[in-house]
Amino acid sequence: MLKLGSYPGQRMLSPERLALPDYDYLAQRHVLTYMEDAVCQLLENKEDISQYGIARFFTEYFNSVCQGTHILFREFSFIQATPHNRASFLRAFWRCFRTVGKNGDLLTMKEYHCLLQLLCPDFPLELTQKAARIVLMDDAMDCLMSFSDFLFAFQIQFYYSEFLESVAAIYQDLLSGKNPNTVIVPTSSSGQHRQRPAVGEASLPEGVEASLFSQCLENLCDRHKYSCPPPALVKEVLSNVQRLTFYGFLMALSKHHGINQALGALPDRGDLMHDPAMDEELERLVMRSRLHRTSRQHRATEPGAFGFQRRDKLEAPENMLSASAPTPYPYRWEPRE
């Protein structure tokens, strides 16, 4: 669970926090962003406070911030305003639509964008496109994507937006032969590599050299004021390869489970569909509908019709279901084409 706060009495001593100047402390924890938003919300809901009182209004506001439900149906500018808001949004998106993943449905970029807009009406298409480019490696943009592939790519793109923009600039510089760090003096041949390697140049592989890229990113992480992935993990990703492309790099970031853990919004890929409470509820529904149906016997569809495919096959109810439903055909919203 995303735990924003424990009770004040139980926390450990953290001298760094206490040594910061007032304004830095408030800015670091985005206190004023939330206070300001609380006031705006209050002004928009004046009738609420006449009914419940101001203290109650603020209590509920700050509690919802802690729980991460404060971003639901809010405008994009607010959703991306703080790292906590971004993480909350990712979590909300996952929780609301994981049944899509459970059903094994593949959707297009446009369809994922519609889902995002259900939670945030003015969510920009550009961001969804960028996330899709990571999954599809900047190719064939109308392809279908699985929920988990999209989700993890979207996470990197959305949470580290500003960082990725800087990374893209560095990548372009490296590609065109400039060294953003200006450590190495360009040789006379550097001018010739302004463009991407020509078709005939088979000897030069795609992308940039990983070690140089890694150096540049290390510098970037040091001076970046927005959140960036843990530098050690970025280094690790880059140390495994000789050369890599921009989208190859983003893909590796999105699949790195250490980076996912450090970000803290989503569970590991394997646990993405794991939700015992909801599974139980669904199973109950399925069992009930099965009893209902066998008593009526007027439909060919079997209980597997709801089509949730579980990873933990060992659990008894699932076995019962699959035994009685040898040909489960999953319920799908067929994506167009």
Binding site: P8, R17, T59, F62
Partner: peptide, 13 residues
């Protein structure tokens, strides 16, 4: 100077 100012504020209000 709480570690978690937002939950601090929730308790406060």
């Amino acid at each position: 100077r709480p570690e978690e100012p937002i939950s601090f504020l929730a308790h406060y209000f």
